[in-house]
Design a protein around this nucleic acid. Structure first.
Length: 307
DNA sequence: ATCCAGGCTCCTG
DNA sequence: CAGGAGCATGGA
């Protein structure tokens, strides 16, 4: 590398704990896209169609946070840096003001305790809503570890990659590539027949630019959920997941989620898995922050943070 | 073998 | 319109 990589410094609003953020990004050893090592987070993304390998590291503290962002590849193209900054600001929610959670924490000691343990974390978005959608479908009704395995296989099979320092960094597959796959081909990757069909059809839509993500982003959450749920293979759980993790809607909780129901049932002393209705009731006081809440409960399920 | 896992579709009453 | 059966796949 003779050309130094362009560098930008990002200033998250405190508190911001990059260690917790990194912990989530690196939660599964099978995760093929988010690469966490040596305190750095690396991710290959397309910025306005241009491939770029990004690296983020912390150069601050939780209460005086600062992040250093580099475009490792193609290093010389400075024009990508502002695009990368914007992406990171959105996905890591650098402008979020967690102080809004204080009254919620005060009113609900159980959730408050979780918030305290996760002080400075953010509800992380995935780089693209399409990627979020496919990921959600992969994860339907199977255990998480297997979902990661499916994702890894899919990404390695259909995604492009850049090499950097002897390691491959994968991009999420282009919709046209997935649309061109045959159901049979996807089934050999251990996808069920239904999931194969859903993914191909949705990828065709995406490749044809037939899903208006910007409208869905701007729409009131219930409308966005209802609209997404008209797509074949997309039920309420998937629509809610995409709204929160792909589009950045702040007040949506996929209450039917089994992991969420188990975590909340346990935490609130039900001694069993909470029902979807119970989760929605318990989450009512978190209004305005329900996406963040869902994220925190999922985080609490990750190994290492369980009570 | 049996039950479970970050659901969805489609069909009943 | 709510509730439930049936479905599909690998893992523990």
């Amino acid at each position: 590398m003779l050309t130094p990589a362009p560098i930008a410094t990002l200033s998250p609003r405190p508190p911001f704990d990059f260690g917790l953020v990194r912990g989530y990004l690196g939660r599964s050893p099978l995760e093929p896209l988010d690469v966490v090592a040596d305190g750095r987070y690396r991710r290959a993304v397309r910025l306005n169609g241009s491939p770029a390998l990004l690296e983020v590291r912390s150069v601050g503290t939780v209460d005086a946070p600062a992040l250093e962002l580099r475009v490792l590849d193609p290093g010389a193209d400075r024009g990508l840096l502002p695009l990368a900054e914007r992406l990171l600001a959105r996905c890591l929610r650098l402008d979020e003001n967690p102080a809004g959670l204080d009254p919620i924490a005060a009113a609900d000691p159980v959730f408050g305790a979780l918030l305290a343990r996760l002080r400075g974390v953010r509800q992380i978005l995935m780089p693209s809503p399409f990627e979020t959608l496919i990921w959600a479908i992969l994860g339907q009704q199977i255990n998480v570890a297997f979902a990661y395995k499916l994702k890894r296989t899919l990404v390695q099979r259909y995604g492009d990659a850049v090499d950097h320092e002897g390691r491959a960094y994968y991009f999420f597959p282009e919709p046209a590539r997935l649309a061109a796959a045959s159901p049979t081909e996807l089934r050999t990757l251990q996808l069920s027949r239904q999931k194969a069909e859903y993914i191909i059809a949705l990828s065709e839509l995406e490749a044809a630019d037939a899903i208006d993500w910007e409208s869905l982003r701007a729409a009131p959450t219930p409308e966005a959920v209802a609209s997404l749920a008209t797509l074949r293979g997309v039920g309420r759980w998937t629509a809610e997941y995409v709204c929160m993790r792909g589009l950045g809607h702040r007040d949506v909780i996929p209450a039917a989620d089994l992991g969420l129901r188990a975590a909340i049932g346990r935490a609130y002393g039900l001694d069993r898995t909470a029902s979807e209705v119970e989760v929605r009731a318990i989450a009512e006081p978190w209004a305005g922050w329900r996406s963040h809440a869902a994220f925190c409960w999922w985080y609490s399920l990750a190994p290492g943070l369980t009570t």
